[in-house]
Structure formats: structure tokens, C-alpha cells
Design a protein around this nucleic acid. Structure first.
Length: 290
DNA sequence: CGGCATGTTGCGCA
DNA sequence: TTGCGCAACATGCC
């Protein structure tokens, strides 16, 4: 479910369902989800309150209450929100419920999360997980100058940097994989070896296209698993652009699919995965003007 | 049954 | 001190 596009669609659902709604009951018994707050405080903070607005930054959602309180929701790997009738039984994987009344209609909104890697907490102040996020590529756009600086500073692979939530909020494994493929840049390239700012611009554009594309067909196939990805999950299959068989490596602990044929690799070439770095000359990043 | 999974965090070791 | 790899978290699904 959850990377920037899914979370954005969730935000739109919640906005439609909840803005202006008054909470009549709320409950979560799940201490894991509300860490570090107490699950008890969830109901206490919500009942009787009105939801005023809902914002998203990266993969986080924040719902503002009329008394200044806030509810933060992160979907983890398998989280999601569904709307059901107020008297509907507990749904599969339900971890929390919020019953509301909006314009005289009562209904219930449930948080479901099979693996429980998500978070759900009611607090009075913004949390560090939220304030520490970098710019959101969809809501804020990508400032190529800042993005380029972040890439230039990183010795990690460009894919790991792009997935760093302090650099760009909301880019996960799928978006990073798809965006770098669209940008035609090899995800293994070290950030400080990129041709900047040209590569930064290409990656920003690739990410924007990947986000737009996912937003579009997530809407279309509500929750079907018909994957519409170009390369994510398609290792060993032909590259949709050049036909080369797609490769797969692990970067920062995540499976990464890319094309050796049309994604250019910056920085040291070399056979294997683990290259020894003997104290040598620092790599000179190629600079491109205009 | 084995392997992999859209995310994040914390630990041990170099 | 810093950085990195990797296990852990909890569970589903192919």
C-alpha cells in the first residue's frame, strides 16, 4: 500500500470522510501502533472532537482536531483506512476504529494493518518523525538546487539517498526504483559521482513521472494487484525501453531492479558488488553547466 | 515449506 | 565517532 501516492490517495479519502465530522467513539487496543503514546489516550483525545483538516508529508498523515490536538498516522507496510457502516463488525486486520457523525450521518472509519508496522497516535504537539521530514516531492515540488546538494554530499548510492526521508519525504523502494529507471540513471551510482545538477534534474523529473503514473493507475485499479510498474518486481524480464534483461541488486537492504542497458552508471566501474576502496584519488564529479 | 514483501529502527561490528 | 550491513518487528501471500 504505502508510498507517497498511496498515502496521498488515503489523504483524499480521509478528507472526504472526516473533515467536519464529530467523533462519537474511538478505540485502539494496540499499544504497538500508538508507541510511544498510550493507546488509552487515543479515545480520550478524540471523543467529542471535530476533525478540522488533514495533511500529508511524505508517508505521514496528520489530522488536526478542533482543540489543537493532532492525530498522526503512518501506514507502515500494510496499513490502510476503510469506511464502513457504524454498526459493521470488526473488519479483517482492524487495529483501530473511529465512529463519527457528519452532516447527520453516522459511520465508522477503521484502521487496518496486517503486519502492524504502522503508527497511529493522538498527541498535542507535532512529532519529530513529522518535523524531521524533507520536502515532499508532490506537495512541495523538488528544489533542484537543494536536491543536487544533498546528492553531492552523499557517498551512499543515489537510490539510498533518494529514499532518505530527510532528503525527499515519501520516496520508497518502488518510487525510487521506478524514478531512477525513468531518469535512466543506475541506482548503484554513488551520489557524489553524479553529473550534477543535470542528473538531479533528471531524477526529479523521473520521480515526478513515477508519482503521477502511480497516482493515475492506483485510482484506476482500486486495489487490484495488477502491477503497472515498469521495472519494480520485473527482474529478469526485458526492459520496456531497450529490451535488455533487467538486473536486480540489493541496495540499503532493499531489492533494486534496474537496466544495465539504458541506465547510465556514474562513478567507479568494476566487476563485483563489493568493491574494495583503497585509499585512492577522490572521484571527480563531472559538472555540467546549463 | 521457503522466500519475499511498499517501512523504520536499533544493534553490533569495522 | 561514524557509517554500514543486517536482523528484527508480525504477518500474508505466492
Amino acid at each position: 500500500m504505502p508510498e507517497l501516492p498511496d498515502v496521498e490517495l488515503t489523504r483524499r479519502d480521509l478528507k472526504r470522510w472526516l473533515v467536519g465530522a464529530i467523533v462519537t467513539a474511538a478505540d485502539t487496543e494496540d499499544a504497538r501502533l500508538s508507541r510511544p503514546a498510550s493507546p488509552r489516550s487515543f479515545a480520550h483525545a478524540l471523543v467529542g472532537r471535530t476533525f478540522e483538516r488533514i495533511d500529508r508529508r511524505g508517508k505521514w498523515l496528520r489530522i488536526d482536531l478542533d482543540d489543537g490536538g493532532k492525530v498522526f498516522s503512518h501506514l507502515g507496510m500494510t496499513g490502510g483506512w476503510v469506511r464502513v457502516a457504524v454498526d459493521a463488525p470488526v473488519v479483517r486486520f482492524e487495529r483501530a476504529r473511529v465512529d463519527v457523525v457528519l452532516r447527520g450521518r453516522a459511520f465508522s472509519v477503521r484502521y487496518v494493518d496486517a503486519r502492524r508496522f504502522g503508527r497511529l497516535l493522538a498527541v498535542r504537539e507535532d512529532i519529530a518523525d513529522w518535523t524531521g521530514l524533507g520536502p515532499d516531492p508532490f506537495a512541495d515540488g523538488i528544489d533542484v538546487g537543494l536536491f543536487s546538494d544533498a546528492l553531492a554530499k552523499g557517498r551512499r548510492s543515489v537510490k539510498e539517498i533518494v529514499m532518505d526521508q530527510r532528503v525527499l519525504a515519501g520516496v520508497g523502494n518502488i518510487l525510487a526504483t521506478e524514478g531512477l529507471w525513468m531518469a535512466r540513471i543506475d541506482p548503484r551510482s554513488p551520489g557524489d559521482a553524479l553529473a550534477l545538477p543535470a542528473d538531479a534534474r533528471a531524477i526529479a523529473r523521473g520521480l515526478r513521472r513515477a508519482i503521477a503514473s502511480e497516482l493515475a493507475d492506483r485510482k484506476r485499479y482500486t486495489d487490484r494487484r495488477t502491477d503497472s510498474f515498469f521495472v519494480y518486481g520485473h527482474a529478469q524480464q526485458p526492459c520496456p525501453r531497450c529490451g535488455t534483461r533487467l538486473s536486480s541488486v540489493v541496495l540499503g537492504g532493499r531489492t533494486t531492479v534496474f537496466c544495465r542497458g539504458c541506465q547510465v552508471r556514474r562513478g567507479p566501474k568494476g566487476g563485483g558488488k563489493a568493491e574494495r576502496k583503497d585509499s585512492g584519488s577522490p572521484l571527480r564529479a563531472t559538472r555540467t553547466r546549463r
